[in-house]
Every structure is written in structure tokens, then in C-alpha cells.
């Protein structure tokens, strides 16, 4: 075959008539405008449905109210009342306590599981199956997963029956259900995957050669973990921590259902106020919570530049 037939030289084609002086005449949107066209709809939706309502309850938090309705005003009473009630502090302390315990537990479990899946499971197929096993319960409604603990932890529940059948105890344990214990167990059950995912993602990006190099340099397993693996997975740890923390702080259902009314969360307190149509104090309460969460998340994001990791 004659190759020249395939690539017959072009006669002076499309651009032949272009004068040399013609410069950059093509009207083309600048890159930033294209980006804004693409990002605009999402930004607009968040602006209308997230920013505006937030501003709205900021405004309402200064309003006056009575049994009948709410009245525009600029009062600091709602905040004053909220911040001087001992109940507020109690609920914040209780929520923070839950958040801290659940964070620590999900971090340890999540990191261990992720580490096992990424570094110890050798077969890619098995690894995928294990990941799916972790993720599948996440696709069942959180409400169902929460109430699933009730027949499990109850006085006549499966767990007590196992304990008694194996002779570990002779009487059912009473503290299992409707207690802080039950709340924490449920949180860990619901949220550990939020840790596993981001951490596994970070771990998988670590070049195995780095770990081998650390071992070659004489680092023990523990030193390798602390000196190499954990620093390189801190983005995942930060992301997972933010997710778990905000989920616990935002919860009202688990606390209500699993504590048997013994504990309250900030949001469950708030939801009671909303049901009683006391919007201004609820709004003030919401604002305080928003600021609190924003400060905590902001702090976590200062520790790790999540944005740099996510957006290349």
C-alpha cells in the first residue's frame, strides 16, 4: 500500500485566506465564565435553600413571641434566656460527651478496619467484597438500623439471652437498652462507615514503597504507623472526624429513641421548641448550635487543608 495516498498533502486549506494581521478575533468565553456557568446552578440552589433560610432564622432569633404568634423585634432575650439556662449547658455537655466518645470509638474502629482492608487483604476481589459488606448496612434506613438495636439490647433481647445461655451472667443486664450505652452503641453502628470510607481512601493513596522504606530504615510497626501512615492519612481522618462529629451533633432521633428519654441532644431540645411553635427561642438555639459546629469544623479544617486534597 502506498502510504502517500493515505496522507495526501493538503492544499492550502481552511485558513488560506487569513491575513497575518488578524489577531485573536474569536469570541470565546473566558475560563472563569465557563466555570461559573457550570457551578452557578449548584451555587444558586445552595444560596436560596441554605444561606437564605439560615439568615432567616438568624433574624427570627431576635423576634418576640407569645402563645399566639411571633413578632418582629430586635431582642436579645432569646439568647439571654438560652445562655443562662443551666439546661442548655447540660445538654451541650451531654452532646459533646457523646460526640467525643463516639468520635474516639469510630476513629479507632474505622482506622483499624480501613488499615486491615487496605494493607492486609491481598486479594482485590476479597477487598471489594469486604468493602461492600461494610457499606451494605448503610443502604438501610437509619431509623430501621436504630430500632434494630431494641430487640437486640432489651431485657429479653438477643444479647442478654446469649449472655445467659453462655453462662456469663445469670440475670439479664438492665443497662443495655434505654441508656447512654445504647445511644453510643447505636451511634457507632450508624457512623463508623463515615470514618472507614475517607480513611481507607487516604490509606490507599499511600505508596506501599514508603512503608517498605520505613521498615528498611529500621522503623518498628508502631513507628511506621505513627511516623508514616497516620501523617499520610490525616486528610481522611479529618474528613471522617468532621462527618462523625456533625452527625452526632445534629442527631435528635437516636438520643430520643435509645436513651428512653433520659438524655437530650441539642437538636432534640430544639425540636421540642419547634413543635411548641416557639420559633424565636428555637432559632436562637439553632444559631448557637450553628456557630458552635462551624467553629469546631473550622478548627478541624485548619488542621488539615481538606480543600487542597479534594480539589486538584
Amino acid at each position: 500500500m502506498n502510504v502517500r495516498q493515505l496522507v495526501s498533502p493538503w492544499s492550502a486549506g481552511a485558513g488560506a485566506a487569513m491575513p497575518i494581521e488578524r489577531r485573536r478575533a474569536l469570541p470565546k468565553l473566558p475560563n472563569w465564565a465557563v466555570s461559573w456557568l457550570q457551578v452557578g446552578p449548584l451555587a444558586a440552589i445552595l444560596l436560596v435553600l441554605f444561606v437564605l433560610p439560615t439568615v432567616l432564622f438568624l433574624v427570627v432569633s431576635f423576634f418576640d413571641y407569645d402563645r399566639v404568634g411571633i413578632y418582629p423585634a430586635f431582642l436579645l432575650d432569646n439568647y439571654a434566656e438560652l445562655l443562662t439556662t443551666p439546661a442548655t449547658l447540660r445538654v451541650y455537655v451531654s452532646s459533646l460527651k457523646f460526640a467525643a466518645i463516639v468520635w474516639a470509638l469510630t476513629l479507632v474502629i474505622g482506622f483499624s478496619v480501613a488499615h486491615f482492608l487496605v494493607f492486609h487483604v491481598r486479594s482485590p476481589i476479597l477487598r471489594t467484597i469486604f468493602f461492600l459488606l461494610c457499606a451494605i448496612p448503610f443502604w438501610t434506613s437509619g431509623i430501621i438500623r436504630t430500632i434494630a438495636w431494641i430487640p437486640f439490647l432489651g431485657r429479653n433481647g438477643a444479647f442478654n439471652q446469649i449472655l445467659m445461655a453462655t453462662g456469663i451472667t445469670d440475670r439479664p443486664l438492665e443497662f443495655l437498652l434505654f441508656s447512654d450505652f445504647a445511644v453510643i452503641v447505636t451511634y457507632v453502628h450508624l457512623f463508623t462507615l463515615l470514618m472507614i470510607g475517607p480513611i481507607a481512601n487516604s490509606l490507599a493513596k499511600i505508596d506501599p514503597a514508603l512503608i517498605e522504606a520505613a521498615r528498611d530504615a529500621g522503623a518498628s510497626r508502631w513507628q511506621t504507623l505513627v511516623g508514616v501512615i497516620i501523617p499520610l492519612s490525616k486528610t481522611g481522618i479529618a474528613l471522617g472526624s468532621i462527618l462523625v462529629f456533625t452527625q452526632v451533633m445534629g442527631d435528635y432521633f437516636v438520643v430520643k429513641t435509645m436513651s428512653g428519654g433520659q438524655s437530650a441532644s441539642i437538636v432534640s431540645m430544639l425540636s421540642t421548641e419547634i413543635q411548641a411553635m416557639q420559633y424565636p427561642p428555637a432559632a436562637a438555639n439553632a444559631m448557637v448550635l450553628v456557630v458552635f459546629v462551624a467553629v469546631m469544623v473550622g478548627f478541624m479544617m485548619r488542621v488539615v487543608d481538606v480543600r487542597k486534597e479534594l480539589v486538584k
Binding site: W10, A12, A14, G15, M18, L26
Partner: peptide
């Protein structure tokens, strides 16, 4: 500056029209 391909100024042409 300018880029010419087979004596045609293609400086402002899109990639596909430069040959």
C-alpha cells in the same frame, strides 16, 4: 508572535483547523 503552518498564519485557529 505568530505560528505559520505551510505559510498560513494559524495563530488564532482552533487546534482542529490548523492541520
Amino acid at each position: 508572535g505568530d505560528v505559520l503552518i505551510r505559510d498560513v498564519n494559524v495563530t488564532d485557529l482552533p487546534p482542529a483547523r490548523r492541520g
